[in-house]
Design a protein around this nucleic acid. Structure first.
Length: 258
DNA sequence: ATGTCTCTGTGCCAGAGA
């Protein structure tokens, strides 16, 4: 069972690239963020003809999340149940593989500039996510909350801590909220299986950041204890950043025992 | 020495968001 998360930065602007990468990474489930289209404008046809079951929570212009699965899906939730949210940032479903696994795909608010209203919203959203994670943990099932967390967990997860230290992605309060999720009992799949320093999932479009490897690690898979038991490896699919018209993020893939 | 991309709309550039 291979589960990926990928912020595509508009699915309409790079559909051929998205399809190419999806073919290459050979996953069972893929959570997409920043699809930047309304639900009914999602390219269902192109994905369904490649065998994907699609669940989508879109909106105009910004944000938007989708959950793709090669297996049957049930129990779909759109939007975090713990917050009134106008923005399309969360989608969850139970994946009916031989051993079912619940998957939540999330696009956490960026929060810049901080401090300010946008950062307040980010903190509210992280708190709502923690409340939801708490409820899920009570079910004692395998689940993975994956997505663009817009959080650089530690100084080793960015190319230059001094550049990011005042950014909403790296502020102490952001890192503290991310740690809270871990203290609840969720594990960062990358940290658990690989944990090398300076392994990135995002590189800015500006200033040739990818060429210089000036990146940050902000796309994460957080696993429940039952999912950790099945976790085998994590791969950051850097190749996606080398393609024509790439997203600024690359897929992060967790492999779990079937 | 300089170098981003994508979205929208009193639209063909500019401002916002990342």
């Amino acid at each position: 069972m291979r589960i990926a998360t990928w912020n595509v930065n508009s699915i309409k602007a790079r559909l051929p690239t998205v399809l190419e990468v999806l073919d290459a990474i050979n996953c069972d489930v893929v959570c997409l963020q920043e699809i930047k289209c309304e639900t009914n404008a999602f390219p269902y046809m192109e994905l369904e003809e490649r065998g994907w079951n699609c669940e989508v929570l879109g909106q105009k212009s910004y944000n938007g999340v989708a959950l793709l699965s090669k297996h049957e899906i049930e129990d779909v939730t759109k939007g975090l149940p713990t917050i009134e949210d106008e923005q399309a940032r969360y989608i969850e479903a139970l994946i009916l593989a031989d051993r079912p696994i619940r998957v939540g795909g999330l696009y956490l608010p960026n929060g810049n500039p901080a401090p300010g209203q946008k950062y307040d919203y980010k903190m509210e959203w992280m708190d709502a996510l923690e409340q939801h994670a708490r409820a899920l943990l009570k079910q004692d099932e395998a689940f993975v909350l994956c997505g663009d967390y817009n959080c650089i967990p530690t100084p080793e997860d960015c190319w230059d801590e001094t550049v990011w230290q005042d950014d909403a992605l790296a502020l102490p309060q952001t890192r503290a909220e991310f740690r809270k999720l871990k203290y609840l009992g969720l594990a960062d799949a990358f940290e658990l299986t690989d944990n090398r320093a300076h392994q990135y999932t995002f590189w800015d479009y500006q200033g040739g950041a990818f060429k210089k490897d000036h990146g940050i690690r902000i796309d994460h898979l957080l696993c429940s204890p039952q999912a950790c038991d099945r976790l085998q490896s994590v791969e950051i699919y850097r190749k996606a950043r080398e393609l024509e018209k790439p997203s600024d993020h690359v897929p992060v893939i967790g492999t779990f025992e079937d």
